[in-house]
Design a protein around this nucleic acid. Structure first.
Lengths: 129, 129
DNA sequence: TATTGACTTGGAGTTAACTCCAAGTTGTAG
DNA sequence: CTACAACTTGGAGTTAACTCCAAGTCAATA
C-alpha cells in the first residue's frame, strides 16, 4: 500500500505519516527496493492505532515510548501495559471533563433558547452570560 | 479578589489569566484605583467558564468570539447561541472519539493482562501490538 | 529513453496556547 | 518614609504537533 493510499484511508497528509515514522510514533515502514514506502497490513494497523490514540489526545511522546518498548521485545509486557494504563487514565479523565463542559453548554444553550423567544436572558443563579 | 486568589482557586498561573484578559477570552477585569486587578464575582464567573471550556478543548478563538458578541449587547442572542452550539458539537464529537479510544485501550490492556500471566501476547484478529 | 508526476530526505517554518522576562508601579509592614 | 513583595505592561520565547519546502530519486507512460 502506498503512502497516498494510507493517507486517503485515514484522511491525513503524507507529511504527518512521514513525521510519525521519523519520530517513532509508528515503527519503520516497509520499503520497495527503490526506498519508497510500501505499507504492509501491520504497518497500516500501527497507523490506525496511532491515529486513534492521537484523536483522543494521547501524546506523541507516549506513543513513541510504547513503540520503543514493543521493539525491545517480550520482556516489556508490563512496561507496555503501564504506558497503556497511563493513557487510559488520561483519556478517562478527559471524558469526564468534556462531559462536564457538555452539560454546561447544554444549560447555556437552553437559556439562550428562552432568551431568543422572550428577548430576555434569564439570570437565575448564574452570574455570567 | 486578587489575581493570586483567583489563580489559587482555579489552579492556574497569573500569566494565563492576564493572557486570557489580554486576548479577550474574558472581558476586562475590574481594577483598583492603582490599576491592580480586583476580580468581582462576575469576573470570577467568566474565568470559571473560560477554564471549563478550555479544559474541554474549546478553542480560545471561540471564547473570544463569544465575549465579543456578549459585549455587543442583547441583539446577539442568536449569534451567541450559534457559537455555543458549534462548541457543543465539537465537544460531543470529541467525547465519542475519546470513548472509542478508551474502548481500544481497555481491550489492549486486557490482552496485556493475559500476556503478563501467560508470557504470550495473543494475536486474535488484531494485527498490531 | 525521455518526460512527468509521485516519492524521498533533512531541515526550516507554522500554529495555538501559553509562559517567561525586564523594567517599572503599587501597597503594606515596620 | 522606606523596604520589599506583589502587582503592572509589552513583548519575546517555548512547546507540541504538525506542515511546508527545496533538491533530488524513482517509476510508469509515450
Amino acid at each position: 500500500m502506498t503512502i497516498k493510499e494510507v493517507c486517503e484511508k485515514f484522511d491525513i497528509t503524507p507529511d504527518t505519516l512521514r513525521y510519525y515514522e521519523r519520530v517513532g510514533v509508528i515503527p519503520e515502514v516497509h520499503r520497495t527496493k527503490g526506498g519508497i514506502r510500501d505499507f504492509t497490513d501491520e504497518d497500516v494497523a500501527w497507523v490506525e492505532n496511532a491515529i486513534c490514540m492521537r484523536s483522543a489526545g494521547v501524546p506523541v511522546e507516549m506513543l513513541i515510548e510504547y513503540v520503543r518498548l514493543y521493539q525491545e521485545g517480550d520482556g516489556t509486557f508490563q512496561a507496555r501495559r503501564d504506558v497503556l494504563e497511563e493513557a487510559r487514565q488520561e483519556v478517562q479523565k478527559n471524558i469526564e471533563k468534556y462531559q462536564a463542559t457538555l452539560d454546561r453548554l447544554n444549560f447555556k444553550i437552553s437559556r439562550y433558547d428562552v432568551a431568543i423567544k422572550t428577548g430576555v436572558l434569564s439570570w437565575d443563579d448564574c452570574k455570567e452570560e
